[in-house]
Design a protein around this nucleic acid. Structure first.
Length: 272
DNA sequence: CACTCTACCTGTGCGC
DNA sequence: TGCGCACAGGTAGAGT
């Protein structure tokens, strides 16, 4: 499941592609599965056909592509969320299409931007302004101001795991990195934020930033059969009944907030 | 407000 | 070998 570090890797791949996506004209829009588009499909096709890629941004797990009309200056944004299994490819247009391609943008210079998504959870939407989406989100996980984060954390009465998963609190953390962050901070997923002492709060803030930054630098997580390129080593996620890398106690898995939650019962202390 | 449940999806991996 | 089924999870929206 792509989270902030994986989405950031996608963005950097596109930005660093041999033939840049910036400046490309959209020659044809091909929607291969109707519900991949939120909103009116005809409008989506007509808005993008003939328009030019100008810019790519990311906030949390959301990607935003800015286009302008070929002769004008009016901008429109394409929002893309990969959800569980979405993947984005910039490929030569003659490359064979994958089985689960949901959306394909044919570009000039013989390129195609393809969105492939077996589970079909991913969504694409046109917005006039990215604030339509980011207005509901907290600060991006890579741009956290530690003092402000500390103050916001200390006020929260919620359990740490659901809090970290709340995109309105911090944008970009998903199930994998929530577990990894709590392990690094040595905090139990059931602990309440407002019961932490100042040292623990600081530890948590540091862990959020460190885990996300390290995962970005390693191009995402390295999990069997889930991701390809990433080298970020998971300590607890998906490792139930395996020894904790710190104390060798067996990693425990429980369902919390409806999510599989992995933690070390010895290293991670609970403050309810 | 805080929390839980459900729908949306389909590939995977298990038990029988 | 193959069938059926539970399971995985991000988000929105409804319900408690």
């Amino acid at each position: 499941m792509p989270e902030l570090p994986e989405v950031e890797s996608v963005l950097r791949c596109l930005r660093d592609a041999p033939i840049s996506i910036i400046g490309r004209t959209v020659l044809k829009v091909n929607i291969l599965r109707e519900n991949v588009i939120t909103g009116d499909q005809q409008q989506f096709v007509s808005a993008l056909t003939g328009s030019v890629f100008k810019e790519i941004r990311r906030h949390g797990k959301y990607l935003f592509f800015r286009f302008t009309e070929s002769c004008g200056t009016k901008s429109v944004w394409m929002m893309l969320h990969l959800r569980m299994t979405g993947k984005l490819f910039l490929v030569p247009e003659n490359e064979a299409q994958l089985k689960h391609t949901r959306l394909s943008l044919l570009l000039d210079k013989g390129l195609a931007l393809r969105f492939d998504d077996p589970r079909a959870f991913g969504r694409v939407q046109l917005v006039q302004s990215i604030a339509e989406i980011t207005g509901r989100l907290g600060p991006d996980g890579l741009c956290l101001e530690q003092t402000e984060l500390l103050q916001r954390l200390a006020k929260q009465k919620r359990q740490l795991k659901p809090l970290l998963l709340d995109q309105g609190f911090v944008a970009g953390i998903g199930n994998i990195y929530a577990d990894e962050i709590l392990f690094r901070a040595k905090l139990h997923p059931c602990s309440r934020a407002d019961r932490l002492d100042s040292q623990e709060l600081t530890l948590l803030c540091t862990a959020i930033t460190e885990v996300l930054q390290q995962a970005v630098s390693l191009k995402g997580a390295n999990i069997d059969g889930v991701f390809e390129a990433g080298m970020f080593p998971v300590a607890v996620y998906g490792r139930a009944k395996q020894p904790c890398p710190v104390c060798s106690a067996l990693i425990q898995r429980e369902k919390l907030a409806g999510r599989g939650t992995h933690f070390c019962p010895v290293c991670q202390i609970c403050k309810i």
